[in-house]
Computed example of a mutant assay.
Amino acid sequence: MTALGDLIGIDDRTVLVLGQGLDVEHERPDVANALVHRTGETLVLVDTGVTAAFRAALREAADRVGPWSRALVLTTHGHLDHVGNNDLADELGVPAEHYVPARDLDQMRDPASYWVHAFERVDGVAPLPPPPVLAGTVVSLFRPMRPFGATTRTYEERPLERIRIGSLRFTGWSFADGAVRVLRSQGHCAGHVVVHLRDCGVLHLSDEGNGPCGAMADADQLKIQTVLGAAARLFEEGEAALLTDGHTFAVRRGAEAVAYLDGLLEQATALQEVALGLTARGGAVRPGAFTTRYTQAMAGLGVGGANPSPMFLAMMAVNQLRELGLRPESGGADAPWSRPAPGDAAPDI
């Protein structure tokens, strides 16, 4: 049984700091796992979670991997459970740099609007409070929220690099003479990156491995599946040895990591087959009814994902309808969705 702030030592200079799951009913925020690593004289923090207790755990982990004389804080994406303690970079007492994805700046500045938009898509689909109320409730759980510090910049202010790891080619940015590689993935949300720590062989997927189907409005299912396949290849080629992520509270090694990644891809194809079956008759589909049956199928397949709840399951179901090419016929709550014929004009919603 793990608890918030537990430390998993990977080696003498790398620690995984464990977060916790979301529990809106009991006013408990989810907190993403963070990586603390030292390369040479540089302390590297990959995400900073949220809450004062998690901040203290980060400081403990930083002390464990020391000594260091400079710091590098890397934000994988802008969701609240990953960014709340970002200003820790200002308090480490050494020269520090902090980078965030440019495409996630808006949600970091105004998280309530981002989550209102996310929940508007499932308004009437699941038994949830109105989107502004639900978004306000969710956002209020994440305190303190300090996503920016004195040194915050965007990755995109640096020249984009072509990064080759084994037979695979990525674009992104490298730090610490190539010991830290930030690889663009942009599946879980618009700005998402994954991080490869060369010297200890850790590949940190952050939230790209949250499940076989992304939930957020700015998720890209193809990119999620592409990065999962690329990650498996890195392990097969020996370019990565340990897999970590934002929410499963585990370190997976070698063949276990490959099996886990392949399992997510198998679930993705199985769920799409289920969705095709549920929409095979043609005509209009009510997303509420579709979500109920899709959720039952997920349970039957043993699909969970991070923070399973009616809220996120409904968001995943709506994304699956979009993935199959269906579109809402109007902007009403639980309005029917249908597959437009080729040549039809897109609905103005």
Results as ranks from 00 to 15, higher is better:
295 T>Q: 04
314 A>F: 00
297 A>P: 00
306 A>F: 15
337 W>T: 04
328 P>E: 09
304 G>I: 06
312 F>P: 07
310 P>V: 05
331 G>P: 14
306 A>L: 13
334 D>V: 05
304 G>W: 04
300 G>P: 08
329 E>Q: 12
334 D>W: 02
300 G>R: 12
293 R>K: 13
338 S>D: 01
293 R>W: 03
299 A>K: 13
313 L>H: 10
313 L>G: 01
299 A>L: 10
294 Y>L: 13
317 A>N: 03
321 L>D: 07
337 W>G: 02
321 L>S: 10
295 T>C: 05
327 R>I: 13
304 G>S: 15
305 G>C: 08
341 A>S: 14
297 A>Y: 02
303 V>G: 07
335 A>L: 07
342 P>W: 01
301 L>F: 06
324 L>R: 04
300 G>D: 11
291 T>G: 00
311 M>R: 09
308 P>Q: 11
302 G>C: 10
340 P>K: 08
291 T>K: 06
334 D>A: 00
326 L>F: 05
345 A>D: 14
342 P>E: 14
295 T>E: 04
310 P>S: 12
320 Q>A: 14
300 G>C: 05
317 A>Q: 02
327 R>H: 11
313 L>K: 02
292 T>P: 01
339 R>A: 13
318 V>A: 02
325 G>K: 08
319 N>E: 01
337 W>P: 11
296 Q>S: 12
306 A>E: 14
301 L>G: 06
340 P>E: 11
305 G>A: 05
318 V>F: 03
313 L>P: 02
329 E>D: 14
323 E>C: 09
333 A>P: 12
310 P>W: 03
345 A>W: 05
308 P>C: 11
303 V>I: 06
293 R>E: 15
295 T>W: 01
315 M>Q: 07
296 Q>F: 04
328 P>M: 12
303 V>Q: 08
307 N>C: 13
304 G>A: 15
297 A>G: 04
343 G>Q: 12
298 M>E: 07
305 G>Y: 03
339 R>D: 00
333 A>Y: 14
298 M>T: 04
291 T>M: 00
322 R>G: 03
314 A>N: 01
316 M>K: 07
319 N>P: 11
